[in-house]
Amino acid sequence: MTAFKSNLSRSYHQEDVQQILNLAIARQSDGGELSREQLIEIAGELGISTETLLQAEQDWLLQQQERQKHRDFNLYRHSQLKRRFGKYLIVNLFLVCLNLLMQGQLSWSLYILLFWGFGLGLNAWNTYQLQGEDYERSFQRWYRKHQLTQVAQSLYSRLNTWLKAVG
């Protein structure tokens, strides 16, 4: 009991408090889910107002949406890299075979293989870099293009529906 009393006088940084509470809540719920009512009750016990909790929930939802956008972007980049690698393999296999058939040895096809491979390697490096200004610029470019595509598809479907209704 004295060990617990001496630990009561400790002080913690805000990040430490959050981590400790996260662990305690995880243990309390036994890895299951907590209802929204339980979340509001826990916040009330911690002296957090309902308005603050609702704003925090909205911020969390926005963060989750942003994370999902980044996951979608990363999946897109990986699929683009796979597509480029497939083209690289097919074309260079053809060129190496053509070079071997025509000259009996590898000569000019190696230059194409190496230079294209170097470019593909740089592309792979950029694909797996998930931080930095270049990544954020690429993400913003992709996101704007993605939004424009969604708007165009929406307009197209509305126009198509309208034309069917008129015709």
Results as ranks from 00 to 15, higher is better:
residue 66 E to H: 12
residue 55 Q to P: 00
residue 24 A to E: 10
residue 167 G to F: 15
residue 62 L to T: 14
residue 44 G to N: 12
residue 25 I to S: 03
residue 77 R to G: 01
residue 53 L to E: 04
residue 95 L to P: 01
residue 49 S to H: 03
residue 9 S to C: 03
residue 6 S to K: 15
residue 48 I to P: 09
residue 36 R to A: 05
residue 53 L to M: 13
residue 25 I to R: 03
residue 77 R to Q: 15
residue 38 Q to H: 09
residue 154 S to E: 14
residue 147 Q to H: 10
residue 64 Q to W: 02
residue 90 I to N: 09
residue 37 E to V: 12
residue 81 L to I: 02
residue 4 F to K: 09
residue 165 A to V: 02
residue 63 Q to R: 15
residue 12 Y to T: 06
residue 2 T to F: 12
residue 75 L to C: 05
residue 117 G to I: 03
residue 18 Q to H: 01
residue 144 R to W: 03
residue 157 S to I: 09
residue 54 L to P: 00
residue 76 Y to N: 10
residue 163 L to F: 10
residue 33 E to R: 06
residue 98 L to K: 07
residue 54 L to G: 02
residue 16 D to P: 00
residue 109 S to D: 08
residue 13 H to Y: 09
residue 18 Q to T: 03
residue 122 L to S: 02
residue 151 V to H: 05
residue 86 G to F: 05
residue 71 R to C: 04
residue 145 K to T: 09
residue 118 F to Q: 00
residue 56 A to N: 09
residue 23 L to M: 09
residue 160 N to H: 14
residue 79 S to P: 00
residue 149 T to K: 12
residue 70 H to A: 05
residue 91 V to C: 04
residue 31 G to Y: 06
residue 31 G to K: 06
residue 85 F to P: 00
residue 63 Q to W: 10
residue 16 D to M: 07
residue 136 E to V: 12
residue 127 T to I: 03
residue 57 E to I: 08
residue 158 R to G: 05
residue 20 I to K: 07
residue 165 A to D: 08
residue 55 Q to N: 11
residue 25 I to N: 01
residue 102 M to H: 04
residue 20 I to N: 04
residue 134 D to R: 12
residue 125 W to T: 06
residue 53 L to Y: 06
residue 102 M to W: 10
residue 66 E to I: 02
